[in-house]
Design a protein around this nucleic acid. Sequence first.
DNA 1: TATGATAGACCGACTAGTTGGTCTGTTTAA
DNA 2: TTAAACAGACCAACTAGTCGGTCTATCATA
Lengths: 197, 197
Amino acid sequence: MSELRDKIIKNSLELFSSNGYHGVSVNDIVQQCETSKGGFYHHFKSKDELLYVIHDTFILYVLNEANQAKKRYDRPMFQLEEMLRALVRVYDLYNEHIIVFNQEYKYLKQEYNELIKQKRDRYEEILKEVIEEGQQCGEIRQELPTTITSMSILGMVNWTYQWYKKDGPKTIDQIASTYIDIIFRGLLTTEALEEYQ
Amino acid sequence: MSELRDKIIKNSLELFSSNGYHGVSVNDIVQQCETSKGGFYHHFKSKDELLYVIHDTFILYVLNEANQAKKRYDRPMFQLEEMLRALVRVYDLYNEHIIVFNQEYKYLKQEYNELIKQKRDRYEEILKEVIEEGQQCGEIRQELPTTITSMSILGMVNWTYQWYKKDGPKTIDQIASTYIDIIFRGLLTTEALEEYQ
DNA sequence: TATGATAGACCGACTAGTTGGTCTGTTTAA
DNA sequence: TTAAACAGACCAACTAGTCGGTCTATCATA
């Protein structure tokens, strides 16, 4: 792609993630990038489109990882572990994307919102599928309601962006391991848990 | 307090939670309330102060519930259960507050932000204390890192606002029970879990 | 090789509209 | 009579987005 386009995305991410989408004007972005209004609008139809692009690159990545995790393993238990490790790992890679995503996705214009929502829903579906399959084959406790369970997991992991700091005392892998420890003990049947450990 | 003041808060909550803080102008609020700019600014110093008031009423309630839970029970295990049930219950009572809170707290002006952050931090401290005490008395597994664990719980529960619908298929109590089921199996030592069930 | 044409990248003054907030009143209730 | 409660015209600041124009690089043609 273009150099300026990348520069705009990179700088916008910094600005958005610390000041919020509405706390940053197109002029701010343009100034930070040492370019002009013309430069900006040459690459983006609107400020909204920029927000969309930020959302999309990140969610596309996550969705892709989830699909791969499903393919790589055939047992739900391991699919789930891989999905979670991948999702948590994203917090190192796309930290700023996620802050912006969670804070501002409500402000996406409808046309963009629908595109994002499709992928978001697809991810949730995959997670649900994995849990359902885990329940069917006796790895995950059947008495757990599938939706609440998958939302619990998603919540736990997604909340990371609220407190995780790259230079904090815990590495992202340590965090992932603790999540998986808690979730697996919480979800797995006694037999599956014994086998897993 | 004043009637108009309450009306402004009530209507703002509706507007903010569906359109976002930045998607709603003071004029929108004033129109919805069938009042005027004068009416609004008689009761609030600024639009920011309104946002602060919304944040504060909700977090004050949650903090209060947590303190009571700590007082009511002496065993960490039960303190934790009560804290979680109370926190989840808030999603029925303060649904709109929470949506606004999570979406917009970043946009609070510094003076307000600090006041909110204090209470928010205090809540997290209480949760951590409970978990630490649970670890010390052998109810909660000692190998779990306290911070990550408490953040996991907070994340799981706080995420509820993203998907919970009052008229959805699951009641808030069912959701709470599933959370507690997963968390307790995930956190408690084998002995404490047996005793609990 | 020299010349002219075309296209994309970028510039920045400008506009039309909106925003939060103010200020001078008027009404209402005690 | 007095003070609080409200009304609404008004303003300065700022916003996203536009538009005529420039600069540079590539490529066909003579």
